[in-house]
């Protein structure tokens, strides 16, 4: 404790409004670690898988960075990249929100799907992007997850999904909620086909995504410190009117309660995935 007080470095005034997630890498800029308050340069972060060297806090990663982190260099081939949302319910302000999200994330929707290889093993990969409307699940996310799973069944290869989501997208109402059932039905098909599905839960994975395909993987991996749960902490606090336990709904808490298989740091993830793929002989039932 005392030691911490002295080593806390807050020498530089950093604009608190600066949005680190807006552009993937800003050379010569630095951020303050939200966990230990250490000052980390973007360059160091990029070298260190966007993990704070001091306290191991995992900074937000864009979907693009995550793909780079996980797959064999140059192996990623996107599919269904042209799927984009429409305002099905005529929900007030939805188009504007979509436009802003597109600008902020540089993506058409909250998930990227494609073929890739890891350690030489062919896989189908889906990565969610929290900069796009908190990676909430509407028609497009549900459709792209389902199509990704169906492509994996066609190719007889495993599926890996990196999740992060605030839940079902309210602006698409019940259509969004039904994507939970749709993606769960798709995972059921994958299981019938005997194919491997690995989920990597990243901060935050909550609501409709956590209660559907994110929880249905054969192997559930979580990043350290990721918030994972069904109800958000604010809603729980409001409902029960008490303080929540420390580390509540964090990966370590989930591991302790038997809800996930392993916590894997970013620096280890590719190696761990390669090992799992190899143990499954590329991901198919023998």
């Amino acid at each position: 404790m005392i030691k911490n007080t002295f080593t806390r470095k807050k020498f530089f005034a950093i604009n608190p409004n600066m949005d680190h997630s807006q552009t993937p890498i800003k050379p010569n800029l630095s951020s303050t670690c939200p966990s230990c308050s250490a000052r980390v340069s973007e360059e160091t972060l990029a070298e260190n898988y966007r993990v704070c060297a001091k306290c191991k806090h995992h900074f937000t990663m864009s979907a693009g960075q995550r793909i780079e982190l996980i797959v064999d260099s140059g192996s990623f081939q996107e599919f269904n990249g042209g799927l984009a949302s429409i305002n099905i319910l005529d929900f007030p302000g939805y188009e504007e929100k979509l436009e802003k999200a597109e600008q902020k994330s540089g993506l058409r929707e909250a998930i990227i799907t494609g073929y890739a290889s890891i350690g030489g093993y062919d896989i189908v990969l889906a990565v969610m992007e929290s900069d796009f409307m908190m990676a909430s699940m509407g028609s497009v996310v549900g459709e792209k997850v389902s199509r990704a799973i169906e492509r994996a069944i066609e190719r007889r290869c495993p599926v890996i999904i990196c999740t992060s989501s605030g839940g079902a997208r309210m602006q698409e109402g019940m259509i969004a909620l039904m994507q939970m059932a749709k993606t769960s039905a798709a995972v059921n098909k994958l299981n019938e086909a005997g194919l491997l599905y690995i989920a990597i839960l990243t901060n935050p994975t909550t609501g409709g995504v956590s209660a559907s395909f994110a929880s249905l993987a054969d192997i559930i991996i979580a990043e350290p410190g990721a918030l994972v749960g069904f109800a958000g902490p604010r809603v729980i606090k409001q409902t029960i009117g008490q303080q929540l336990p420390e580390k509540f709904q964090r990966s370590e808490f989930l591991l302790e309660h038997g809800m996930i298989d392993i916590i894997v740091e970013r620096s280890q993830i590719r190696e761990k995935l390669t090992c799992l793929l190899s143990l499954h002989k590329g991901g198919c039932r023998g």
Binding site: A185, A211, S212, S215, L216, G229, A231, V235, I240, H257
Partner: peptide, 23 residues
């Protein structure tokens, strides 16, 4: 939405029912 519900895997339990009913 409660502490015990989260500790005992609310999300997981719901997802299992969704998948089971689908098939």
């Amino acid at each position: 939405p409660g502490i015990g519900a989260e500790e005992r895997g609310q999300a997981w339990a719901i997802s299992q029912v969704l998948m089971t009913m689908a098939g």
